[in-house]
Design a binder for these strands. Structure first.
Lengths: 225, 225
DNA sequence: GCTGCTGTTGTACGATCGTTCAACAACGTA
DNA sequence: TACGTTGTTGAACGATCGTACAACAGCAGC
């Protein structure tokens, strides 16, 4: 209606709103990844459809296959992004903390039990990705690539925390039954993940601060052994 | 080919293999539920299709809607069965154990870290169900119905275990910082679930016995406080 | 203002989805 | 042996799925 019917380059024709905006591939790819995660949060596994995602991103159905070879590659890219956001956020929180093993561990735990990590929507996203894990080599590869960074971060902090606890009495004999670092890391990871899972499933069951306290108490017990 | 072309009731006609076997609704329903779980183990979320499930059960596509009003009801029934198998198995293990709080707790833990509960296939099934949780009221209802039994079992055992630990010194004042039963149950559940999850994701990372030991050490620490 | 590239659109296609339903057939009953 | 009940089949329906592709159009460079 509002002008522009003529093909001649009148001022009105030039001023009309473009039907779409071209973007750099990198930006568009990221927008599609964000839309994928948003769809997972809103609709769960059913949100993983080309049409749902493209609608969420405000683009046409054909665009996804222009930027990604197929749907699975988009999902894997979204999983990679989601994972690195988590690990990156935790690393940043640790880096911001005071320069002591105890403070770093606390910062790590508090970041783990805060938004955006402690979020029911986030659990919904994780769970769908986990459900794809067994039958998608792409997802398995992303998992292997990113999980390493998480384990290294947690293990490093636990190691320096335990080392500090022993430091005041360097010649004290190692008590029988002191768990090795490997089992300690396994246990802390389990407690952390389990609490995180429980809270997301039933946010009213306990407060995030209680989860942090439970984890810290666990580490304290380890140090006292 | 092999006889029976004639509609007359010859002996060959009567002896021919029936094209299908009628079953009681209850039996057929259970067979469909079993097939659903088997499909989830084999194909993950993609196994949740009417055709896949009916093929697994060896019946036609139409039969499912004869025994279940729709697909979601079948899935919910499968989830209910899967849950009660778990809780029932754990209860049975506890009932078989010696009559002491410590033995019961150990039996519970060992059953938790044994097949069929400790199983990668089982995790794949759980994860798909969890992915449906947020967007299916049916699944939410089943979860609410069955999870209660699990929590009650675990909480009861932990309560008697902690009570026993206090028993020898009934008049000893309650120490500062002793966690209440509520938080203790939350922590044990988290540790248990987290270890179970970790093992299923990476079965080589630790042995089931180590998981049991970690949980028992955690309970021991609780008792000593 | 024109041209070229390429990001973007939207229709079309075949496959598969959940569900329906008329017809079939197994088997208890008389 | 004939009948009636009802568990069972399998074709068919419309909807939706992922992907392909020809046409369109935004925008930089000349």
């Amino acid at each position: 209606m509002s002008g522009g019917g003529s093909p001649s380059r009148t001022r009105a024709a030039r001023a009309r709103r473009p039907r779409f905006e071209r973007q750099l591939p990198q930006q568009r790819r990221q927008a599609l990844i964000d839309a994928t995660i948003e769809c997972l949060k809103r609709y769960g596994h059913e949100g993983l459809s080309i049409r749902t995602i493209s609608a969420q991103a405000g683009v046409s159905v054909g665009l996804i296959n222009h930027h990604f070879p197929n749907k699975n590659q988009l999902i894997a890219a979204a999983y990679r992004h989601f994972n690195s956001e988590l690990v990156g956020g935790l690393q940043a929180a640790v880096a911001r903390a005071a320069d002591s093993p105890r403070a770093r561990m606390r910062a790590f735990l508090e970041a783990s039990f805060c938004p955006p990590n402690l979020d029911q929507d986030a659990l919904a996203v994780w769970v769908v990705f986990w459900g794809l894990y067994r039958h998608s080599r792409l997802i398995q590869r992303v998992q292997r690539d990113t999980y390493r960074g998480y384990v290294r971060l947690l293990r490093g902090m636990l190691a320096e925390r335990l080392a500090q606890a022993r430091a005041p009495h360097p010649r004290r004999p190692r008590r029988r039954g002191r768990p090795d670092l490997r089992l300690a890391a396994i246990g802390l990871t389990a407690l952390l993940d389990g609490l995180w899972l429980e809270w997301c499933l039933e946010p009213g069951a306990f407060r995030p601060a209680e989860a942090v306290a439970l984890c810290e108490a666990w580490v304290e017990d380890l140090c006292r052994r």
